[in-house]
Computed example of a mutant assay.
Amino acid sequence: MKPTLSVRQVADMSGAIRKAVEALTEKDVFIGVPAENAAPRQGGLNNAELSYLHEYGAPAAGIPARPHLLPGVGDIKGEAAGLLKGAAEQALKGNEAAVDAALNRIGLLGQNAVRARFQNNDWPPLKDATLDASPLKKDDEGNVIRDKGGEAVRGKSRREKGKLNPLLDTAQLMKSHTYVVRKKGKSLVTPGSAS
């Protein structure tokens, strides 16, 4: 009987697996208003501050809570957990691209769920005074436009425009809610760090 020889090639996937697992464990998905979307608006507050103000309300200023961020993220918990489980399975196969895709998918789900809260909610309605206020029309430089008689020209009220849903007059705050995927500890302001 002749001895048989068989050759089998085994691929070393340890490097790919390590990179994919690092991609999963060393990155975070942040849903909300990133610093780059938080430029100051008219009135001095930026979108991140406005989001916080409306999330929790400011009773002393007569602003009721209109939660959108926490409930929106809560809406995707189950689906996000499933995506993370699938990403972990892909990481153990060395598929880093699938891990990154899953993290971005979670971010997009969260972004869309938060934005949906601006349109579908049970928030306290706007006050009649807010709905009926007619804003002054301004030119590109911010000057009040006046008619031939010198009177300030006013635009339509929210009620006249049919914009009755709180926080959706321009949808600027809603659109500022997005997501970012970052390496842990990168570009975050934490207590005690410089901002």
Rank of each mutant, 00 (worst) to 15 (best):
A81E: 15
L92M: 14
G72P: 07
K148V: 04
A113D: 07
T25D: 12
I17F: 02
R158D: 07
Q42K: 08
A38N: 07
K184C: 05
N165F: 00
L84I: 12
P125Y: 00
R105N: 08
F30M: 08
D28S: 11
G43D: 09
V73N: 00
E141D: 09
E22C: 03
K2N: 11
A87L: 05
I145G: 06
P135R: 12
L24W: 00
A97Q: 12
G74C: 06
G82K: 13
D28W: 03
A101T: 12
A80M: 07
Q90P: 09
G32H: 03
L45S: 12
K2P: 14
H54Q: 06
V7C: 11
K93T: 05
P34F: 03
K183M: 07
L53A: 08
V21A: 12
N143C: 05
V180G: 00
Q90C: 04
D147P: 04
A101Y: 01
R154V: 15
E26H: 13
R146H: 12
L5E: 13
T130K: 02
S14Y: 02
K148A: 14
D147R: 06
V21D: 07
K27N: 14
Q111D: 05
D100Y: 06
A81Q: 13
K138L: 11
S6P: 01
E22S: 12
A91S: 11
Q172W: 04
F118P: 00
K137F: 03
N143I: 10
E79N: 11
A133C: 09
L168A: 01
Q119Y: 09
P59C: 06
H54P: 07
A129N: 13
A133H: 13
G192P: 11
H68K: 07
I76A: 03
K2M: 12
R18K: 14
A87M: 08
P40T: 11
F118W: 02
A58C: 11
